[in-house]
Simulated scan of single mutants.
Amino acid sequence: MAKGNQSRRGAVAKKNQPPKMGSGGKHRRALEGRGPTPKAEDRTWHPAYKQKVAKERQAEREAARAKSMTASAVKVRPGYELVTGRNPVVEVVKAGNKVSRIYLASDPSQGKMREVFELLAETGAPFIEVTKRDLDRVSDGAAHQGIAVEVAEYEYSDLEDLIIDSLQQYKPGLLVALDHITDPHNVGAILRSGAAFGADGLILPERRSAGVGVTAWKVSAGAAARVPAARVTNLVQALRKCKEAGFFIVGLDGNADTTVRNMDLGDSPIVLVTGAEGSGLSRLVRDTCDLIVSIPMTSNVESLNASVATAIALYEIAGE
């Protein structure tokens, strides 16, 4: 206590305390700090935070929209495929293929759909009502016309059976073989041309070749149900078997001197072989052919699409 105040009434003498060093002793907690400064987008009161929240909500909406665009009520089981469109559906049913499910997105009482609906009702398969958007998602943009059926994957014929059935026709046998045709649209178009011009079957190699899948079914407009196809491990060996059975092997090539219109094979059964556009027939396949023919064209066009060339050749053969 300060000197001179010790005698003051009620005064209490204080013990001496050690002095505090600087302001740290008094404001030590305040000087400890609050850690690193949060980013602007993490401060709830900052405009950057509101922008971040808005972007996150937008991303969530876009993800939900993308999910709704990819999800579909049409579920195709393993080992099955989807055939879409009125004509392909009618053809697949008339060909005796077993239908396991029917997806309908159109009014069955309207126009031609009524006839299709009645035909499908006879199969005994369950009807599943879906939206047109559901069918859009599973048909790759193809015109499905509001109808699709689930059937077992295409069942290929045996080559020997194909040869025998072709030779037993009332007309000279006619088969089509494809060499390295990898576009299923071409396969479907060739099936359609084959059905139009009397081909008895199609021969496809297993490797480096498109098969008779959903796309080919659709492009063929149902012709895949009428023209059987055989898939072989070796196209050259398959062509040799056809030769042994009496078939004349004719290959298409744009540089051949003989045209398809001028060839004269009489009543011989024919296997018409088409190669890929650009590369044409492979060497071994070409060597196996009995005759190489071309389609006459103007000099302005180097080559034709494989399916177009096949259709022209089939037309000429059918007209002989």
Rank of each mutant, 00 (worst) to 15 (best):
G35Y: 08
A40I: 03
A71K: 13
P78G: 10
M21R: 13
A105E: 01
T84R: 01
K39W: 08
A54V: 06
R77S: 12
P47W: 00
V99M: 05
K98G: 10
P36G: 01
A71D: 14
K75H: 14
T84V: 15
G85T: 05
L31S: 10
I102S: 00
R28N: 10
V92R: 00
L104I: 13
E60T: 10
V93Q: 03
R65P: 03
A54M: 07
A59D: 13
H46L: 06
E91C: 09
A64Y: 02
E41N: 08
Y103F: 15
Y103W: 14
M69I: 12
E32D: 09
V89Q: 01
P38S: 04
R61I: 09
E91M: 13
V92L: 03
K50M: 08
G96H: 02
L31N: 12
Y80C: 12
N87S: 15
Q58M: 07
A66C: 07
R43L: 11
H46S: 07
A63T: 09
K75S: 12
S106D: 14
R29A: 10
S100Y: 04
S23K: 10
R86I: 14
M69G: 07
K75N: 11
R34E: 08
A48H: 05
Q58T: 07
E81L: 12
V53T: 10
L104G: 02
V83H: 00
V83F: 01
G85H: 05
K94H: 12
K39I: 04
P38V: 05
A64T: 11
K75L: 11
S100P: 00
T44C: 08
T70Y: 09
K26S: 06
A71S: 14
P47F: 02
R61T: 09
R101W: 06
P88N: 03
P36L: 06
R101D: 12
T70I: 11
T37I: 11
A66M: 11
A66S: 12
R101E: 13
K75E: 14
A71M: 13
M21H: 11
Y49K: 04
E56M: 11
E41K: 10
V53I: 12
T44A: 11
G33P: 01
S23G: 06
V92I: 15
V90W: 00
K55P: 02
E56C: 03
K52I: 02
R61H: 08
K67Q: 13
V99Q: 01
Q51C: 04
V74C: 04
G33V: 02
G79L: 09
R86H: 09
R61P: 01
V83M: 04
M69W: 08
K75F: 11
V90S: 05
K55T: 06
R65D: 10
P47H: 03
R29Q: 14
V92C: 07
A54D: 10
H46E: 04
A73S: 15
R65W: 07
